[in-house]
Design a protein around this nucleic acid. Structure first.
Length: 973
RNA sequence: GGGCGAGUGGCGGAAUUGGUAUACGCGCACGACUCAAAAUCGUGUUCCGCAAGGAUUGUGGGUUCGAUUCCCACCUCGCCCACCA
């Protein structure tokens, strides 16, 4: 028998596939199309293991679709513009174009060793003038629609890479450049932007319907950051001027006790302000982003000396300037509600501004036929023992003292009375009111009624040497007042949690939290203060709106203020426009000309591409090297033909990658970025596979550009990627991110040399769930290599075997095993569960092996079918050995053009099945029964099973449960 | 601080309309073949226990005949966002 030698068969088949153009697809025919691609790589020059982890599984899925008779377009390209090429030029004195070209050649060679089913006639390289011509065209089209514009503003500047960055490219806690990790600085510059914010609502709304990982959808949702609220005008005291604020919580307006302006707010120029305020404004506006971040914990601000009028209370409220309000969001002014906003609260505490609570908690969901009650909750505390007094053994948990208020009684009187009645404590050192009362909805199981209660909490400081009551009273006669630690009280209260009407429990837990805070304050001799509450609830201290749920009050208040013409509903987004200019060389030049007479002029479409000059001088000066190339810079104005200068900034590489997938189906089209008919037939991408790191950047930009092209340039779809999958990240064997400095880099090339590409592909898909990634275990690949060896030897032995006649039993068993495997591999592939798909193939191989050991392999139709099916299932995962063995098994055409096998449910079904027998929940025996046994028979058989009998002796069977195909469960006593 | 996700043998992991936990692989041990080794093949391998048996899916509690799966609280780790009003 021949040995399995991947070094021989892999290059052999790669060459055959390329020579026969097996994977080239004629895109003029769009029938049964399936368009699947990985995210194209940046040509760094070296294909690393992460690339393999992206490309190999994508290839497996592509091959699987092809075997199901689809016309698959699977292609690759290079995201070839970008900084590293330029840095290499500076460092090694090689032109970026040359460096890029060499890298692409090297990577193409590496790529081919994977044995991918790419259509090599449709490779796209973004630095190719024939490509970036259309990137520039895209700019012109956006410019035409005023969606590309030039504006002055504060931008993020990376001092190391010497260029501006988009918001999306500034990451992490310290606001660093996502490429080099240097903290960015803020600079005011005039730059080019794409108006992605015009598409914010569509970008958000489409997400609902998309077959994308929830995580990515969530990240995009957060990034777009839609918030609905209202604009409300506050009049300036003693003036006709007004200040408009944006708020998402108009329901809290009665609690707006002051107002804050961003230091950059325009109205500050009109107000008469002191020098002190001017100085503050100057200081804060000059701060860099980093400095503002560092100062984050400590908010600063100054009082302007002016007042505004709260439109609902008509109260004068002071206007402050503070750095915690940003000019870039909303109106740059806020109404501050310290009782219900964490930031306003901190600020109010620091500067001693009034805090007014207007929303109180409303725990639990409203219940049917609620009875309204008012009462108190009392927690006692002894500072000496540090224990709290609660009602132990209350309905098998722990309760708190308290009860309903009597006619004419104050809250505090009620608290005093309840504490005495339920615990026996009469001597209280100090009573502390625990903030505002709260509402709760709960079910009283003793009286079988639903309650809606308004409860006031109290903390009583007492000495625990007082005698406690022996036991509880009336309805809950079992409880026992006891001194307990707070954690145990919480656990005890949680035990009471009912399935409905959980408000009572949550109410108590809230009071526990408040009691602890109050104790801390008491020990420090401070008054107790309620924490700011930013949740929903019911309104208090809000005039005619008292008692309304906050959501309802929001709408009502805005509607009422709108009638007076001082409020309107408003939606805000966090998404900012996309800054696309870069002060670098290696990118598509922005096709714009500046003329002293005519201003900003777009380059005429017929003059595209604006070619990047090749011979430029590289120095990291903070200005584009193009600036020094006079031949490039000096040109004629397209409008007046007078002398003019070109824009020397280039475009962000994310512009290149925001439309490349539209080019693959017609890469050589010269009349536009894509052939309109072909893109209509082949778009959108049916399945897009790549890393989570592009969740926001690339995937948001590509969606925006696709929407734009749909609106104005004939695309019949607005979402570019129907289905998206993310691969996980492969770590080094030590569990850390692979890096040269750590010395934990696994070279895929070495793995291929030692084990073969098929083994590597298989191992990467076998090591765990695809979207999870994880450490690369160097020993693990031996398992998939062994598996392939076993497949190889089975096929080899079969081809050398003598014809035989099959036994009927053997045939049935073989067929059943094969169909079971076809089913699970097919279903697993559907969900990209490669690891379990491979595991079931391994199981089949183990079974075939065992059969060979016991009865041997004969040339029978059953064996032929078993091995054919196995090879077909394996082919998308390990394409080379699949092709080789397919030929060995006597087939003339490529396995990759052969139909994927189907399974037959009837052939999988077995005649008998094993049932577990449980006694009181424990498995005690196993019985083998016919699949279609009746319930009564199964139970009867279970009872008489060997081991079961002894367990049943002298016991009565209370219950018997039969789950067909699974088990019989007997409950005995 | 907020949001999302995860925690199962020595290791990677499998199992969810609640139904025999540990499939598949790595590693390890023993055996066969061999002068020997590698490779290959076979047997075993969650833990405790000689065994009978018992325990076990981060911890504690709950619902259930039955919980890795559902509910509650907590712990740990990972990712994303972070003064967005």
């Amino acid at each position: 028998m021949r040995r399995y030698n991947p070094q021989e068969i892999e290059p052999k088949w790669q060459k055959v596939w390329e020579d026969t153009k097996l994977y080239e697809v004629d895109t003029s025919d769009g029938s049964r199309k399936f368009y699947i691609i990985p995210m194209f790589p940046y040509p760094s020059g070296d294909l690393h293991i992460g690339h393999w982890y992206n490309f190999a599984p994508t290839d497996t899925v592509a091959r699987w679709h092809r075997m199901q008779g689809r016309r698959v377009l699977h292609s690759i390209g290079f995201d070839a513009f970008g900084l590293p090429a330029e840095n290499a030029a500076i460092k090694r004195n090689i032109p970026p174009a040359q460096w890029t070209k060499d890298n692409i050649a090297a990577m193409t060679k590496q790529l081919k060793t994977i044995g991918p089913s790419y259509d090599w006639s449709k490779v796209v390289t973004t630095s190719d003038p024939a490509y970036y011509r259309w990137t520039q065209w895209l700019f012109l089209k956006l410019f035409e629609k005023k969606l590309a514009y030039r504006a002055k503003g504060v931008v993020n500047w990376c001092p190391k890479d010497q260029t501006v960055l988009a918001n999306e490219q500034v990451v992490g806690e310290d606001n660093v450049c996502d490429r080099c990790g240097t903290p960015v600085v803020r600079k005011e510059m005039e730059q080019w932007y794409f108006k992605i914010t015009d598409y914010a609502e569509r970008l958000l709304k489409d997400l609902d319907e998309m077959d994308w990982p929830g995580r990515v959808k969530l990240m995009q949702t957060n990034w777009i950051g839609k918030s609905q609220g209202a604009l409300i005008d506050f009049k300036l005291d003693g003036s006709e001027d007004k200040i408009s604020v944006f708020t998402t919580r108009p329901d809290t307006i009665f609690g707006a006790t002051y107002m804050v302006l961003a230091p950059e707010h325009e109205i500050l120029r009109q107000l008469s302000i002191s020098d002190e305020v001017k100085k503050y404004i100057e200081q804060t506006t000059r701060k860099t982003e980093l400095e503002r971040k560092e100062a984050e914990k400590e908010k600063t601000g100054v009082f302007t000396g002016s007042y505004a009028i709260n439109p609902v209370t008509s109260e004068k409220i002071p206007i402050w300037v503070a750095d915690y309000v940003l000019m870039g969001y909303g109106t740059g002014a806020i109404m501050a509600v310290p009782a219900h906003d964490e930031r306003d609260w901190q600020f109010a505490k620091k500067y001693d501004l009034p805090i007014k609570g207007v929303v109180i908690h409303d725990f639990g969901e409203p219940l049917a036929d609620e009875e309204y009650v008012e009462g108190v909750v009392v927690i006692a505390y002894d500072p000496k023992t540090k224990k709290y007094l609660a009602l132990d053994k209350w309905a098998n948990g722990v309760g708190l003292a308290g009860g309903g208020i009597n006619e004419g009684e104050s809250y505090e009187e009620c608290a005093r009375r309840e504490l005495l009645e339920e615990t026996g404590i009469s001597d209280v050192e100090s009573w502390i009111r625990l903030g505002e009362p709260v509402y709760s909805h709960y079910y009283n199981n003793l009286k079988d009624t639903n309650k809606r209660s308004l409860g006031q909490g109290y903390l009583a400081i007492v000495d625990s040497s007082q005698k406690l009551k022996e036991s509880g009273l009336e309805a809950h006669e079992n409880f026992q007042p006891a001194w307990i630690d707070m954690d145990s009280i919480r656990v005890g209260i949680n035990k009471l949690r009912p399935s409905k009407g959980t408000g009572g429990v949550d109410h108590w837990l809230e009071m526990c939290d408040r009691a602890e805070k109050a104790v801390e304050a008491y020990m420090n001799q401070q008054p107790y203060e309620q924490d700011p509450y930013s949740g929903e609830g019911l309104l208090i201290n809000s005039g005619g709106y008292d008692g309304l749920p906050s959501a309802e009050a929001r709408e009502k208040i805005v509607a009422d203020l709108a009638k007076q013409g001082i409020a309107k509903e408003e939606t805000n987004y966090r998404l900012r426009d996309w800054l696309i200019s870069r002060q670098r060389y290696w990118g598509p030049p922005i096709p714009v000309i500046y003329c002293d007479k005519c201003g900003i002029q777009a380059v005429s479409e017929k003059d595209l591409p604006v070619q990047l000059p090749e011979n430029v001088h590289f120095r990291p000066t903070g200005q584009s090297p193009l600036l020094q190339d006079e031949n490039f810079v000096n040109t004629k104005c397209p409008s007046c033909d007078g002398p003019a200068k070109r824009e020397t900034d280039t475009m962000d590489t994310f512009v290149d990658s925001s439309w490349y997938f539209l080019r693959y189906p017609s890469p050589d089209f010269e009349q536009g970025p894509y052939d309109p008919q072909i893109v209509k037939d082949w778009g959108p991408v049916d399945h897009y596979i790549g890393g989570i790191e592009h969740a926001i950047l690339h995937l948001m930009y590509a969606r925006f550009i696709t929407m734009f092209l749909r609106d104005y340039h004939g695309l019949p779809f607005e979402e570019p990627f129907k289905k998206l999958s993310n691969q996980g990240i492969i770590l080094g064997p030590d569990g850390h991110k692979m890096s040269k400095s750590r010395g934990n880099v696994v070279s895929p090339d070495e793995q291929v040399t030692s084990y073969g590409a098929d083994s590597l592909r298989l191992y990467m898909m076998f090591m765990g769930p695809y979207d999870q990634g994880g450490p690369y275990n160097l020993g693990g690949i031996t398992g998939t290599r062994r598996f392939l060896e076993r497949v190889w030897s089975l096929a080899g032995e079969f081809t050398e075997a003598q014809p035989g006649s099959p036994g009927a039993k053997e045939e049935v068993e073989l067929t059943s095993a094969v169909h079971r495997t076809i089913k699970s591999v097919s279903q697993d592939l559907e969900q990209l569960a490669f690891n379990t798909a491979i595991a079931s193939m391994m199981s089949l191989v183990n079974e075939l092996h065992a059969r060979r050991e016991s009865t041997g392999i004969a040339r029978t139709p059953a064996w032929q079918n078993a091995l054919d099916s196995l090879v077909l299932l394996l082919a998308p995962f390990a394409p080379h050995i699949g092709e080789e063995l397919w030929q060995d098994l006597g087939h003339k055409t490529s396995v990759h053009s052969t139909k994927w096998p189907m399974w037959d449910e009837l052939l999988i079904k077995q005649e008998t099945v094993k049932l577990a027998v449980q006694i009181n929940g424990k498995v005690r025996a196993e019985i083998e029964v016919s699949v279609d046994i009746s319930e009564a028979e199964a139970i009867e058989k279970a009872k008489s099973a060997d081991k079961v009998v002894s367990y049943l002796e002298g016991k009565e069977i209370k219950k018997a449960i039969y789950v067909p195909g699974r088990l019989v469960s007997l409950v005995v006593a």
